[in-house]
Design a protein around this nucleic acid. Sequence first.
RNA 1: CGGGGAGUAGCGCAGCUCGGUUAGCGCACAGCGUUUGGGACGCUGGGGUCGAAGGUUCAAAUCCUUUCUCCCCGACCA
Length: 592
Amino acid sequence: MRLSKLFFQTLRETPAEAEIASHQLLLRAGLIRQVTSGIFEFLPLGMRVRQKVEKILREEMNAIEGQEIVMPVVQPAEIWQRSGRWYQIGDDLMRMKDRSGRDMCLAMTHEEVITDLVSRSVNSYKQLPVVMYQIQTKFRDEPRARGGLLRVREFTMKDAYSFHTDFEDLDLYYPRMYEAYFRVFRRAGLDVVAIESDNGMMGGTMAHEFMAVSDVGEDTLILCRNCDYRANRQVANFSKNVAHQSEMLPRETIYTPDCTTIEELARFLDISEDQTAKAIFMVATIVRTDSAEDVFVFCVVRGDMTLNETKLANALNASSLRPATEAEIRAVGAEPGFGSPVGVNFNQSLLIVDDLVVESPNLVAGANKVDYHYKNLNYGRDYDGGLVADIVSADDGHGCVNCGGELYSLRGVEVGNTFKLGTKYSETLNAYYSDSQGNSHPIVMASYGIGVGRLIACIVEQYHDEQGITWPLSVAPYSMHLISLATTKQVEVRAKAEDLYEELVNSGMEVLYDDRDDRAGVKFNDADLIGVPLQITVGSRGLAQGQVELKVRRTGERHLLDAENVQAALVPFLQVEEKLVTDLLARDIPIA
RNA sequence: CGGGGAGUAGCGCAGCUCGGUUAGCGCACAGCGUUUGGGACGCUGGGGUCGAAGGUUCAAAUCCUUUCUCCCCGACCA
């Protein structure tokens, strides 16, 4: 491709709206353009990268029996009503009416449509298992798009769905998808960490997230330094330590002026935070089949712990949570800042106590009276009932639930996920098959997603420097950036560059050819910004010695090549670039 | 939805506090000339509903009201 003909423009200055590296560079290098919040165009260079990623996805999905299909973006409400998600999902689901007033929505994922498809086509165990995938647009009306391609509203996803006679068969297939996911990410140059995760709105029995470790990530991974335990913080378990075991002591009321936070309280009493309990007040929306109910939830966790809203929501089966207002807190008889479950009437509200609080004796907690706390509060003696569950977050320094090792945390971007869905969708959408005895069973399902744009953003986050992007060869828009430094008078330099371009293209290489009438500095800077792995410069200086110059973008190393034998001389450098991916692929895949 | 910031040419911004010719600068773009190995120089030129609507005023980019959009933090999120 000749740069003089390419629809692109590099930006010298960083657009004001972009803060993170991938967003800035994708805009500056002319790969994407934002239309409105969370909605982007892919320009020719960006489209080339996308096609590279999609090719990898297709190859890896095809290799594990995946069959490619395309499902619609605009879907009838009816199937979403049948699965229940029409009611469970809030404003993220973009709803609309067609001209005849029928409710429609934009697909945020495709479980409903594919289950409906399979329900009408699959009748017998002989047709199972079957795996289908597509690379298709999703729309999620995110409350807040951010970070360029990291979090968008309209995006392209590779989504795959597998259908099985039973869980045993799913369990046989699931590891193949898991390994294929590692191959996809590694072929794209990205190493990922697979972690246990929440099922969220997908439902089902088990889920993994594939995280690209990055400081710009929105998720927190909890990992063990000693064993291979790794989970999203939303669901991570840890070994809870009862810090101060002792006999129950008599409860006392103590004066604690202005101690409205655990930190102030611990400092005032000169005790550690793990000797206190804190009350957190939430309002949970609990969705039943056809109604939703708001319930006041009184949470008690130990003072040194952080409430985990995902765990809380799962324990309550709540669709959403929000902090309670002061008025709501007082309405149940509690005092904000000095809250305690003692004396609260739980007829109209729900008590949920973290299991660690139940184990920990003699805690200091609020007395429901301004400036007073109770000392030696014990669950079972001073208050009881309610729900006891794990509702706190694992954190750096906590103990691993498997081996007792030290846990630590990393930030990550979720680039893919896999869900064992079980029979949630097959039952509601009537996807049943007959076994060899003629008995009917719901089909066991799983779904698997990879966000294409997000993956590209993660690659750029990992592969860039001060000058621009440093694409891995496998996903680079071109493999070669040929720069002609010929001025108008240097016809022989020009001719050599043209010949070389033709020669390289004819040999099957993907060449971006800077034939523009511009200054050398402009061309070098654009080449560095776009980040094609190998740069070849044809100029009068080198040509006088019968040479052209090669620069390896990622390392910056430079070599002189015989101008008459460029193509062959490039081969070893391409092999070095390929090694980046082969090295990644050679690593062991951590077990699920 | 809560908090903060910003909308002036394709991009980056100044002007606004304290209203006053024809709204400016850099980059980008077009033409001509000189240049030509790491973002050249000169001359000339094109491009603006100053986000939108309403109001105050002799006069509004500037003051007031309303509203829309974008970005960041939080909430939320397969």
